[in-house]
């Protein structure tokens, strides 16, 4: 098993944290979380793509970390998520997940 944690800073107080578990080259689990650092230096998740229970989906949280929306979606890798975050980061909280 190979576990990779990758933290990508996309802006001063914003990052995408990816966790990928691979076995013999096949991805068993992934999660990519776009997070924003608040004033208290703690990180709040805004949008998370993962395949928990082998069901690829995306979750949206409000500004305080409470889950507000969930939709199934295609599997995403870190690069795809980073592209989406770069394009939509300023509007992610107000967007509907179907737009992602």
């Amino acid at each position: 098993m190979k576990l990779t944690r990758q933290k990508t800073w996309v802006h001063k107080n914003e990052m995408v944290e990816s966790l990928v578990l691979e076995n013999a080259g096949r991805i068993r689990f992934y999660s990519h979380t776009y997070m924003v650092r608040t004033k208290g230096r703690s990180w709040t998740p805004y949008v998370k793509w993962d395949n928990w229970d082998r069901q690829p989906h995306v979750d949206k949280f409000d500004g305080s970390g409470v889950l507000v929306e969930q939709k199934s979606c295609n599997e995403k890798n870190a690069e795809e998520v980073l592209k989406l975050v770069k394009i939509f980061r300023k509007n992610l909280l107000s967007m509907e997940l179907s737009q992602l």
Partner: peptide, 28 residues
């Protein structure tokens, strides 16, 4: 389930690191 995203990641990391998974930690 998905209401605590950090917990899920902690579980996956804890379980697999305890089982001896190879760990790569990267910052970009």
């Amino acid at each position: 389930k998905c209401t605590s995203p950090g917990m899920m990641d902690d579980y996956v990391m804890w379980k697999n690191l305890a089982d001896g998974a190879e760990f790569h930690d990267i910052i970009i």
